[in-house]
């Protein structure tokens, strides 16, 4: 894997995040390559989730959270006041730790994003968007006959794929995944991982995971976080085979965390 040939999609520079007086991220510098899966690993509370929530500015929702520094997507700064978060989040989708479908039908779950962005002009176009999104999320065959059933009636793994389909429905460029498999069984996890592998052809994916094996399986690049600092970033192969830092070595071999 040649890192240098890849185009940089997201560039975090000197990123500091504070929750009230407590600092959660310290001077994070991280480049995320286009159409590649970047995994973020590290012990609980190390700031991985906080970091990816900076990429679509979900931290804005938290009153006491203050973000300093710069995050650039395609060279454009997103942390400025005049950046419209709605447009940003259209471009940067997110999948959460626990599947969180809307308590609406499967169809409405997917259609919601396109509706608020005015992406479809008529019912046919909307049907089309719903179908392609579900197909991309490898869920279409399972739910095509029951699109009007509530999204919450699906199994956990299906719900998570529904959430991925929902994120895809607005045609994002980047997909952030915050431990998308932590609430799923191994079979559902395998399906999601397969899906991630497929999605990386068209999307830039950042995934936070607690499973080292998962990072190895799905990602091309891995960043190791510890206590709000980024310890080591490199190709996944290098991180897991021959980490430069002792702490990374200890973590991936299960000596702490």
């Amino acid at each position: 894997m040649e890192l240098n040939n890849s185009k940089i999609k997201i560039k975090a520079k000197n990123l500091n995040v504070f929750y009230g007086k407590k600092q959660a991220l310290f001077n994070i510098n991280l480049d995320i390559n286009q159409k590649e899966v970047t995994a973020l690993i590290g012990p609980s509370g190390c700031g991985k989730s906080t970091f990816i929530r900076c990429i679509n500015r979900m931290n804005d929702v938290i009153d006491i959270c203050k973000v300093e520094g710069s995050v650039e997507i395609d060279g454009a700064e997103i942390n400025e006041k005049n950046v419209d978060v709605v447009t940003l989040r259209e471009k940067v989708g997110m999948v959460f730790q626990k599947p969180n479908p809307f308590p609406k039908s499967i169809y409405d779950n997917i259609a919601y994003g396109p509706i608020i962005h005015g992406a479809a002009e008529n019912k046919d176009q909307m049907d089309n968007i719903v179908e392609t999104s579900l197909k991309k999320a490898a869920l279409w065959d399972e739910v095509k006959d029951r699109l009007n059933e509530p999204g919450t009636s699906l199994s956990g793994g299906q719900q998570q794929r529904l959430c991925i389909a929902r994120a895809l429905s607005v045609n994002p460029e980047v997909i952030l995944m915050d431990e998308p498999c932590s609430a799923l069984d191994p079979i559902a996890t395998a399906k999601i991982e397969e899906l991630i592998d497929d999605l990386k052809k068209s999307y830039t994916i950042v995934i936070v995971t607690h499973s080292m094996a998962q990072a190895v399986r799905v990602s091309q690049k891995t960043g190791f976080f510890h206590l709000g600092k980024i310890i080591e970033v490199d190709s996944t192969e290098k991180i897991f085979k021959n980490p430069a830092n002792k702490m990374t070595q200890d973590y991936i071999t299960g000596r702490f965390g």
């Binding site: 447009t87 959460f96 809307f102 994003g113 607005v170």
Partner: peptide, 23 residues
């Protein structure tokens, strides 16, 4: 109302107003 619903709406690009009144 669980915060995950708000996050879900916000993450597909709903504004605060839309999140509140749609969900």
């Amino acid at each position: 109302v669980p915060p995950s619903i708000r996050e879900a709406a916000l993450s597909v690009g709903a504004s605060k107003f839309q999140t509140v009144f749609h969900h």
